[in-house]
Design a protein around this nucleic acid. Structure first.
Lengths: 215, 215
DNA sequence: CTTGGTTTGTGAAACCTTTCACAAGGGCGG
DNA sequence: CCGCCCTTGTGAAAGGTTTCACAAACCAAG
């Protein structure tokens, strides 16, 4: 088992865990790979293969123990602890994140916020003091944030990501529409809404072209 | 050329287009596949392969005409026109989207907004009147929105997506942390921040486990 | 204890994507 | 006009992911 695990596998593991927690809440004891596969649109074989990279968690003829698999997946995904987030850029997206209770509920706590805007610095947003950029390093060190979130304009995103990395974060989530390259093994995930919309635009145009030429 | 194009290819095409527009702005005339590859982290061969699915756009020995390729990619991706968006849920994320100028700048106009909250209905957010959910169908029909955005709580996301589909949108962008399944060929893309964070959590834990056992 | 029904874990096969490597074509300097 | 250098377009190879299919294991009932 366990070589290099693909992003898509990890993504699915998260989805399985979500479903398992729901099942746990309603008191289910066992679940089969096919039940587990359904919500993520995967197949039962894929569920079993995904899990097999990490060990053997099921009972043949019976399925998986819900509680047991929840704990196993939490351990694999690093979700048996909570993570601290440092947010850079308290604009539209940054504020939305701060106000989104879903993060803290799932173990991701925003513990520090930064902005360049003098009007914002020193004020509080959702109970969190907004620091100037110059305090990035010390505040991140003191707060112990492990994840940096870049919610700044595109032009400065790369620079901010580099500063976050230097300040010691272990991973970065980027909302600016720019592809940031991983440095020093600090993984970066980008959430690019425009890219998603353009992907949809392609699919709609493609559909139009198909039906257009058929009709 | 042109069979079924993978999501990752389309994603890269968007990135190429971004770079090409920057190049056009600074007045570059030609660009090579290797220059084009750099910002998206692709290889030159991949750029050429991606483009080859749609035709032959370059000149051997010279590269690609920047202006020509911009127009070609815009056509392929369906970006030579603008798209209208109907937004359902004007909470944190919904408001952030409304206020985000980057969308309109790239040809995605939010033309209609809906919410269940009586306090919001009838008011205006960023110049846009907020409609009650009961008016979904007529307002979408009248506004001609092609893309529906789901920015509601998870519990109602699936139902809203179905209503949007019935109201006639051609694609859906979903921000709720739930996997929605495509119906009637209406493509759905989900932006799931928690999933991204959990992916980062996995990578950080993995890194910890590796160095932990090595040291 | 045995039988039958069920579900896992996993090699092998199928499928898909990326990379390689090179012939074909184009431009430029002389 | 010729020869050299450069870059595309593309089959073939390599690499990766998903699906298939089945033996092994477990439970329950008789």
């Amino acid at each position: 088992m366990s070589g290099r695990i693909s992003d898509s596998t990890v993504r699915r593991l998260s989805l399985y865990l979500r479903m398992l927690r729901d099942l746990e809440r309603v008191g289910a004891e066992f679940v089969s790979s096919s039940q587990l596969a359904e919500p993520s649109g995967a197949t039962s074989a894929q569920v079993r293969k995904d899990l097999s990279h990490f060990g053997s968690f099921g009972k043949r003829g019976r399925g998986y123990s819900v509680a047991g698999l929840v704990r196993a997946l939490e351990k694999i995904l690093g979700l048996s602890r909570s993570w601290r987030i440092a947010l850079v850029g308290v604009g539209k997206i940054g504020s939305a994140l701060l106000g989104y209770g879903g993060l803290a509920a799932r173990g991701f706590d925003v513990v520090a916020a930064f902005d360049v805007d003098d009007a914002k610095i020193g004020t509080r947003a959702h109970g969190l003091r907004i620091h100037p950029m110059t305090e990035l390093r010390p505040v991140i060190a003191e707060s112990g944030a492990e994840i940096g979130v870049v919610a700044t304009p595109t032009e400065v995103a790369a620079e901010i990501a580099a500063e976050l990395e230097r300040a010691g974060v272990g991973a970065i989530l980027n909302f600016a529409p720019i592809e940031l390259s991983e440095v020093n093994g600090v993984p970066i995930r980008t959430v690019d809404i425009v890219l998603e919309l353009e992907g949809l635009s392609y699919l709609m145009s493609e559909a139009g072209r198909r039906t257009g030429s058929d009709a």
